Computed example of a mutant assay.
Amino acid sequence: MSAFDLTPPTDAQRDDLIAGLSDEERRVLLHHGTEAPFCGVFLDNKTDGVYTCRLCGLPLFRSSAKFDSGTGWPSFFKPYDAAHIRYIRDTSHGMIRVEEVCARCGSHLGHVFPDGPPPTGERHCLNSVSLSFTPVGEALPDSLQRGGVEAQPAD
Rank of each mutant, 00 (worst) to 15 (best):
C56R: 05
T52C: 15
I18D: 03
G49C: 06
I18N: 04
S63H: 03
F67L: 04
S69P: 02
Y80P: 11
H32K: 15
N45F: 02
R27F: 15
T52N: 07
D48N: 14
T71Q: 04
A36Q: 10
G72Q: 06
G40E: 12
G49M: 06
T52H: 08
D23L: 09
S63K: 06
R54A: 14
F61K: 06
R26H: 15
E35A: 04
A82F: 11
I18E: 11
A82C: 02
I88C: 01
H32M: 12
E25T: 10
R54P: 01
R86T: 14
S63D: 10
L21G: 03
Y80L: 06
A36W: 06
G20P: 01
D68H: 02
F77K: 02
V28M: 10
K46H: 07
F38L: 00
C56M: 08
L60P: 00
A82W: 08
K78S: 06
F61W: 11
S63A: 14
A65N: 12
F67M: 04
N45P: 00
F77M: 01
L21Y: 07
P37G: 13
L29S: 09
P79C: 04
C53G: 09
R62N: 14
L29K: 07
R86S: 11
T34M: 12
L30S: 09
H31N: 15
I88E: 02
S64H: 03
V41N: 13
A19D: 14
V50F: 11
K66W: 05
V41P: 07
T47D: 14
V28C: 10
C56S: 07
V41T: 12
G70L: 00
C53K: 05
V50R: 10
E24K: 06
R62L: 08
L55M: 04
T47G: 13
S63Y: 04
C56Q: 11
L21M: 09
F42K: 02
L29A: 11
